[in-house]
Design a protein around this nucleic acid. Structure first.
Length: 271
DNA sequence: CCGGACGCCTGTCGGC
DNA sequence: TGCCGACAGGCGTCCG
């Protein structure tokens, strides 16, 4: 599910409820996530005050007095803020209970997510240490993409989805940004010029910003912290629109597998 | 170093 | 109606 806009939406939703609060009990119902929820995590977080919340790529960071809770939502994860006595559903694997009677509840049907405690500084943790720049930051631009792409033959779509190049761009927004920039997803990275990488970097930023403004994309599992949906799905121009008309030229949108991921594009607008 | 394949899970959908 | 395979927003790991 969750790509950068959904994680950012979740961050903005939960932050006001959690910042400054003290953690009571962490209740883990099922440790079997992508990485097992560590045995010692309950004692690590018990009684600690939440100092700050942030995002790095698709990871959510909850900064404590000692260490940081690192959360990844995988494919189907979501976080909600609820009263602690709300009855849990089948896939509600853990509750981070606060002293104020609320809890942060993680749901993840496919269990591809992560919920970890990492020591300070979190950026040094192996899961975060090798991540590329944030796409919404100034370091990420067309010149950066162009420079990184030299000598790389993989499809440009796989290239921009590589988290060591740039974080946060998943399958939905990679498809959308390539369409907006007029670039064919299967084009080899080293056969995209500087100009077109400039357009691509701009469109990645624009599509992510617009999706954040609309609360992310809800296809199936993603919900905001209050249970409401994101509305960017209404703005999708190619993703999951195979056979439908391109919004700019009317040509039927094609679907094809590129780099093991379902890819959607307009054969006329994208070259 | 790079690129490609695979596995991890559950739920849903389409075809027979 | 039931069964079966394909597929789904991600990513770490392994192999050539």
């Amino acid at each position: 599910m969750p790509e950068l806009p959904e994680v950012e939406t979740t961050l903005r939703g939960i932050s006001p409820h959690l910042r400054g609060e003290r953690i009571g009990q962490l209740l883990v119902r099922d440790r079997r996530l992508r990485l097992p929820v560590p045995r010692e995590i309950e004692s690590r977080v018990q009684g600690q005050r939440i100092l700050a919340l942030s995002r790095r790529g698709k990871y959510l960071l909850i900064g404590l007095e000692c260490g940081t809770i690192l959360i990844h939502l995988g494919m189907s994860g979501s976080l909600r803020v609820l009263a602690s006595d709300t009855l849990p559903g089948k896939h509600d694997h853990l509750d981070l209970r606060l002293h104020n009677g609320k809890c942060l509840r993680m749901r993840d049907p496919r269990r591809f997510g992560m919920f970890l405690w990492v020591p300070d500084p979190p950026a040094a943790h192996p899961l975060l240490a090798h991540l590329g720049p944030e796409p919404l930051g100034s370091e990420f631009d067309g010149d950066y993409l162009y420079a990184q792409s030299r000598g790389r033959k993989c499809a440009v779509k796989a290239f921009i989805m590589d988290a060591s190049l740039v974080v946060g761009v998943g399958n939905i927004y990679a498809n959308e940004a390539l369409h907006l920039a007029g670039i064919h997803p299967a084009r080899p990275s080293n056969r995209v010029g500087r100009e077109r990488y400039g357009r691509l970097a701009r469109q990645i930023k624009l599509v992510l910003e617009k999706a954040i403004a609309l609360g992310g994309t809800t296809l199936r599992d993603f919900v905001r912290e209050d249970g409401s949906q994101g509305y960017f799905a209404l703005s999708l121009k190619v993703y999951q629109r195979a056979g439908e008309s391109c919004t700019s030229c009317g040509t039927p949108i094609r679907q094809r597998r590129i780099g093991q991921r379902s890819s959607f594009f307009c054969p006329l607008c994208q070259r």
